[in-house]
Computed example of a mutant assay.
Amino acid sequence: MSLPQPVPPSWKDLGKSSNDLLGKDFPFQGFGLEVKTKTPSGVSFKVGGSRDAKSDAINGDIEAKWADRKHGLTFTQTWTTSNILRSQVEIENQIANGLKLDLNTSLLPEKGAKTALLNAVYKQSGFHTRGALDLFKGPTFTADTVIGRDGFLLGGEAAYNVTEGNVTRYAAAVGYNAPEYAITLHGLNNLKTFSASYYHRVSADVEAGAKAIYDSKSTHGGVALEVGAKAYLDSAAFVKAKINNSGVIALGYTQSLRPGVKAAFGLALDTQKLNEVSPAGPSHKVGLSLTFDS
């Protein structure tokens, strides 16, 4: 008798290990600050802000979240500096085991713009499926499913415009997840864009990954390639580095200053334009991010 299969990752999390390795902890786009607090009653607050180094634009938001774990209910309210109000209501494992429902809405009062997205997630052994209905855009129904067995993964996604009665987008993916490495192949944008990602936990202190993207509609042609690595210096610090085939090198350093306080530094260098004097010039970027979590 075969052992029960684990719940596979969702469609959006296929290739997540490689995406996180190459995409997170490189705060070279500007300066950011995030503060998280939690009240004795269980309400958590998060305040975040960032300044873009290129445009000097400052953006921020404040988020409040209340969760009733006993009844599987979560309510989140967010207000941004762009005067956008976002609300999310989630209900999990109440109607059926493994089923999660949530409603996401946003409102821009000064323009009267609004969105509403109804989501449903159902996951069981070897099976993970999601459905989303965009009530104001189309309306459009999007569904994706991932099936997993013995580490092998097969997934697909499709979007259907209810009003026009046609499929507007479809994609497919295959992959293999092992305890120490993962491989994922995607066919996106109606199978016009293809990506391959690889992640490897070399040891307890070292991780490596790579990602290649080919867009059949690109005017430049060729394959965009990016490789990177992460190394833990100790239990409180790690460094990351990556390089792409355009010659841009990115470096990141994250340090836990004390429990609940984390600082991250980022630097991006265009190796084809190293003669530019200022490291913060148009081809080189630096940034800093601070996180406080109490």
Rank of each mutant, 00 (worst) to 15 (best):
D68P: 05
I243T: 07
Q88R: 14
V7L: 05
T184D: 05
D25S: 13
R86K: 03
L257D: 07
A241L: 15
M1Y: 10
E63F: 01
G252S: 10
K100W: 00
T271F: 06
P27D: 09
A96W: 14
K230P: 11
N97C: 06
S17G: 09
E276Q: 13
T129I: 13
F265I: 10
V223M: 11
G221T: 07
Q77C: 04
L117V: 03
A280M: 14
P8M: 02
H220F: 01
S50P: 02
A159N: 12
R86T: 01
Q29K: 08
S203L: 05
N166G: 03
Q5M: 03
L251N: 11
N166Q: 06
S289M: 08
T168M: 11
S87C: 07
T184P: 10
D68T: 14
H220M: 07
I58F: 11
V167P: 08
V162L: 15
T291P: 08
S106C: 04
V223E: 09
H128A: 11
F152D: 04
T219A: 12
L108T: 15
P40H: 09
D270I: 02
R169W: 02
T145R: 01
S283F: 10
N245E: 05
K262P: 04
K46H: 07
I91Y: 05
R86H: 03
L191R: 05
V261E: 12
G15S: 06
G72S: 07
